[in-house]
Simulated assay, not measured.
Amino acid sequence: MTEHENEFLGLGESMIPMAPEGFRAGFVGLVGRPNVGKSTLMNQMVGQKIAITSPVAQTTRNRLRGILTTPQAQMIFVDTPGIHKPHHRLGEVLVQNAQIAIQSVDVLLFVVDGSVAAGSGDRYIEELIAQKGQGVTVIVGLNKIDQQPSESEAIDHSYYSLAQAHGWPIVKFSALTGQGLDKLQELLINHLEPGPYYYPPDLVTDQPERFIMGELIREQILLHTREEVPHSVAIAIDMVTEEDALTRVLATIHVERPSQKGIVIGKGGAMLKTIGSAARQQIQKLIEGKVYLELFVKVQPKWRQSRLRLSELGYRVEE
């Protein structure tokens, strides 16, 4: 593990202190349809970018934890892949992991898109939570209120009806602007049980730095490419070496077809250069230092269908 990783994980000089009397702690699962703003919400809550965000749906793959510690409580947010009908083995793994998270947290925040009325996807997740989340406190989070039309009563009513059918409290907020997040935070803390610090107070995620680097690279691919590419990409961080004033990162972008490799590289390597430059800037913010990033592109046919390839690239059903 590098020096940067020790600092990022909070394992350097930090020790887990004794929690004060009345302190609360617990795990908060974020579930919902793809693209409702779960990753944006977690980044906003912990105050640092640890999850990628993209206009492309279904971008969250691994179950990522973000940690918010206040004087009153420690909340460990578990960001899950958007629940959807899977079309390949990767999709099956992602949905399985989201379902497992429903049963393994203390509070479940069911995030919905408040700019549109509740749809069949929301009702499917409602039924799933009712079946698998018995005994878990559920809160409905009405996100994107900054994008609501002026006449939003019908939209609000569709979600209030859904929540009231189960006695779930509902809170409105905007993960993008931060509006209403103080009320959300207060509600979450009130529903946690008294408990200890699970992680050092200065920690913001339990994921290693290499994982976040790979996600930042994948985010730029999602932002700069379209067509068939976004969901066919996986990133492997091959090497991270530290010199006096520079961190060298070598990474491989795995795609499924030669045509996708051509799109990622672009004419004369222009697209790969654009992706690399933008990702390097994000990684420099992450480690607070200068970065040299070198990217390679490799074709791995049908990696999303292969259990072995999925495991090699870090995708597996959570315990």
Results as ranks from 00 to 15, higher is better:
T2I: 14
N6G: 13
L9W: 11
L9T: 04
G10K: 13
R24D: 00
G29P: 00
V31S: 09
L41R: 07
M45P: 02
S54D: 00
Q58I: 01
T59F: 02
T60S: 11
R61F: 02
R63W: 12
G66I: 02
M75K: 01
I76P: 02
T80C: 04
H88W: 10
R89S: 03
L90W: 10
A98E: 04
A101H: 02
V105K: 06
F110K: 05
V111W: 05
A118Y: 00
G121R: 07
G133S: 11
G135H: 03
G141V: 15
K144M: 10
K144N: 07
D146L: 09
S150M: 11
E151Q: 15
S152E: 06
I155M: 03
H157P: 00
Y159D: 05
P169R: 13
A175Q: 02
G180Q: 04
D182Y: 11
L187W: 01
H191K: 07
L192Y: 03
E193L: 12
P194H: 14
P194W: 07
P200A: 15
P201Q: 09
D202M: 03
D202C: 01
V204K: 15
R210P: 03
R210D: 10
F211G: 09
I212R: 12
V229R: 07
D238Q: 13
M239D: 15
T241L: 01
E243A: 10
D244R: 13
T252I: 01
P258G: 06
I263V: 15
K273N: 15
A278P: 02
Q284Y: 07
E288G: 04
E288N: 15
V291I: 05
L295E: 00
F296L: 12
R304D: 03
R307Y: 11
L310E: 12
